[in-house]
Design a protein around this nucleic acid. Structure first.
Lengths: 183, 183
DNA sequence: TTATTATATATAAATTATTATATATAAGGA
DNA sequence: TCCTTATATATAATAATTTATATATAATAA
């Protein structure tokens, strides 16, 4: 699925592997992410499949860049992917819930401490979502009015993160209360 | 992290690779899962590390089973893991949100259709959570009163799924409305 | 001044995960 | 009766991901 993420971003305009990583980290990190090494490998594979092309760009005081552009074939593949509904929810992994599941043996104090740590971490994610991410979307909307529809969907994904993190925090508050009473 | 999932389950009692897969599918699938092939490979590695032991059990009318048991070393490792807080939220991947992010180019009809499909899928997951999973936890609690604390935590993880799926459905409803109005 | 981070590329090795394949008996459904 | 699923084990091949490593210049912070 990383190929579609890269095609999706390259559909906005040409950019380097390094650019793609930065952009991914600023926009989709909460629901899609990749390491640089994987990005470079996937870009190579996409080029081999003629989904993208690339050219080296000399830079004066920085290392040279390789800038990638999507091809018509790439656009077609991307279009096919976004038009095709997913008919199953992909299973995800939540390390904290797994740990919680097996935590009957730890002390009440430690358990409460870990729940509070999780709450703080989610609170921070929620703050960043509401400030930094919202600002990025607003700023991009301002600078690129032709991406109004895109911005609507970007905002929808940001909002998803907001609603889910708020739900997680509510759940953590509820769980802390139950553990305090009954554990 | 699969090793800890397996150690966690084996801490409840001896079981086979096949048993572990069944139990994982019935209890933690919403936040932790693994394929049989990975389970067998990881059991082998755990045995090599003396975290578990195993013995073959002949069966009359079924293939023989290999039953695994946790060792004292395995219990110590598990204990260390559950007692150690996670200080970062692991990044997850949500294929649907990635697709939504890049869906400005599809038709309003298709987009609404995909949002409704997602809603239906989450509704089904929520129903199963509230019925089948809740029943499994209730039944296990009945049969094993000594696992009362465990059941409290299992119920907390189930509740987490409930709260998050309800939040996702709310978000989908909100997003369908916004797309209807503004897309 | 030195260490760290940013800007850049990229591969290799290791780890985790999935799919495919293999073997084998029993039970259930069409 | 035959096909599929359940019950069982397990490995091989492939794919995805992470960590490590390498090279190199510029900017920033201590």
């Amino acid at each position: 699925m990383l190929k579609y993420a890269l095609l999706g971003f390259l559909n906005y305009g040409p950019m380097s592997g390094y650019d793609l990583k930065q952009l991914m980290d600023q926009s989709t990190a909460n629901f899609w992410h990749a390491k640089l090494s994987q990005i470079y490998v996937t870009l190579k594979a996409l080029e081999a499949e003629d989904m993208i092309t690339s050219s080296a760009v000399t830079q004066e005081s920085r290392p040279d860049r390789r800038v990638y552009s999507i091809t018509a074939k790439g656009k077609a593949d991307l279009s096919k992917w976004v038009n095709t509904p997913d008919l199953e929810i992909a299973q995800s992994k939540e390390p904290f819930l797994l740990k919680l599941f097996f935590s009957a043996q730890i002390s009440k104090e430690n358990l409460l401490s870990q729940l509070r740590i999780q709450r703080d971490l989610h609170q921070k994610i929620l703050e960043r979502n509401k400030t930094e991410l919202a600002a990025v979307i607003a700023q991009t909307t301002e600078q690129a009015p032709h991406l109004k529809k895109d911005a609507l969907l970007w905002e929808a994904t940001r909002r998803s993160g907001e609603i889910i993190d708020e739900a997680i925090i509510r759940w953590l508050d509820e769980t802390i209360e139950i553990i305090n009473k009954e554990f």
